[in-house]
C-alpha cells in the first residue's frame, strides 16, 4: 500500500483503516482527498454519498485493485471478500461452479471446496439451484451467487459495492435481512457502499457520509440498534429519525 510521512495511528487492531487517503487518476481527476475511516473486526460500516464522490474508488483501493496516491491504507485480513455492483458470474458455469470459482483460484482441495460450496449455497438460500446457469436466475439470485462465491473463502473483511442497487425494494429488503443473518453467523468486518439510506441504517453499526467529489468522510452517524435486527425495525420511529439525520447530512454535502 502507499505510505506517506503521516505517523501510524495508535489503535492497531482495526480490520481496515484509511488515514488521509487520496486518489488522483492519471487524467487529473481527484476522486478522494484525505479520506479517513476505520472498520473494527466484526463491525458493519456503511458509506453513503452522492454519485461519483469516490465510493467505488475507496473499495478498489482497499482491495488493492487500485493504489492510493496519498495517505495510508491498512488492511488486516487473511481473506478479503469483494462483491461488485454486478454479479460478474461466469455465464458458462452453473451456480455450484460459480460459487466454487474463487476457491479454485485459491487452490483449495476438491473435497474441501465442495463442502464449502454446499455450505455457502445453503447459507444464501440457493439450495436446489446448483445446476442452474446464471441466465436462468433472477437478478437477486445472481447477487446471492456472487455473495456465496466470496463466502466460500470465509472472508474476515468483506467489501460490498452497492450489491443490491439494481434490485427492487422487496428483494433488496429480503437480501438485507439475509445478509445480516450471514454477518451474525460469520462475524466479518464489512464495508458496505449504498445509495439507500434505509439500507445503510438497517445493516450498519455506523454510517459514514461522504462529501461530493473529491470525496472525504464528512459525517459519521452511530446506529445504536443491537443485532440481530428484526425486519420491523424499519418501521420504528427511531429508525426513521436516524434516516432523517443522515439524509440531512447528505443534503448539505
Amino acid at each position: 500500500m502507499t505510505t506517506t510521512t503521516e505517523p501510524p495511528p495508535a489503535a492497531a487492531t482495526a480490520a481496515l483503516r484509511f488515514a488521509g487517503v487520496s486518489k488522483r487518476f492519471k487524467d487529473g481527476t481527484v476522486a478522494l482527498a484525505g479520506a479517513d475511516l476505520s472498520v473494527a473486526p466484526a463491525e458493519f460500516v456503511s458509506v453513503v454519498g452522492p454519485s461519483g464522490c469516490g465510493k467505488s474508488t475507496l473499495l478498489r483501493i482497499a482491495s488493492g485493485l487500485d493504489d492510493a496516491t496519498g495517505g495510508t491504507v491498512d488492511v488486516h485480513s487473511k481473506s478479503l471478500g469483494y462483491v461488485f455492483q454486478d454479479a460478474t458470474l461466469l455465464p458458462w458455469r452453473n451456480v455450484a461452479h460459480n460459487v466454487g470459482l474463487l476457491a479454485e483460484l485459491e487452490h483449495l482441495g476438491k473435497r474441501e471446496r465442495q463442502a464449502r460450496v454446499a455450505e455457502a449455497i445453503e447459507l444464501v438460500g440457493l439450495a436446489g439451484f446448483e445446476r442452474h446457469l446464471p441466465h436462468e436466475l433472477s437478478g437477486g439470485m445472481r447477487m446471492r451467487v456472487s455473495i456465496a462465491r466470496s463466502l466460500v473463502l470465509a472472508p474476515d473483511v468483506f467489501l460490498f459495492d452497492e450489491p443490491f442497487g439494481a434490485l427492487d425494494e422487496i428483494t433488496r429488503e429480503r437480501l438485507n435481512d439475509e445478509l445480516l443473518r450471514m454477518f451474525i453467523q460469520r462475524r466479518f468486518a464489512a464495508l458496505f457502499i449504498t445509495h439507500s439510506v434505509q439500507e445503510a441504517v438497517f445493516l450498519s453499526g455506523r454510517v459514514l457520509v461522504m462529501s461530493g467529489r473529491p470525496g472525504r468522510i464528512k459525517a459519521e452517524v452511530a446506529v445504536p440498534f443491537a443485532y440481530p435486527r428484526a425486519p420491523e425495525l424499519r418501521y420504528s420511529a427511531e429508525f426513521a429519525a436516524l434516516c432523517g439525520e443522515i439524509s440531512r447530512h447528505l443534503r448539505d454535502v
Partner: peptide, 27 residues
C-alpha cells in the same frame, strides 16, 4: 472479456495461464 471478471481474477492473484484457461478461452 468483461473488465469486472478480469478484476475478480486479479483479486485472487491468478496467473496468466489460469486466466486464459478459466476465463478468456471460455468467454
Amino acid at each position: 472479456v468483461d473488465r469486472g471478471m478480469h478484476e475478480l481474477f486479479t483479486l485472487h492473484h491468478t496467473g496468466r495461464f489460469t486466466r486464459l484457461w478459466k476465463l478468456q478461452l471460455p468467454a
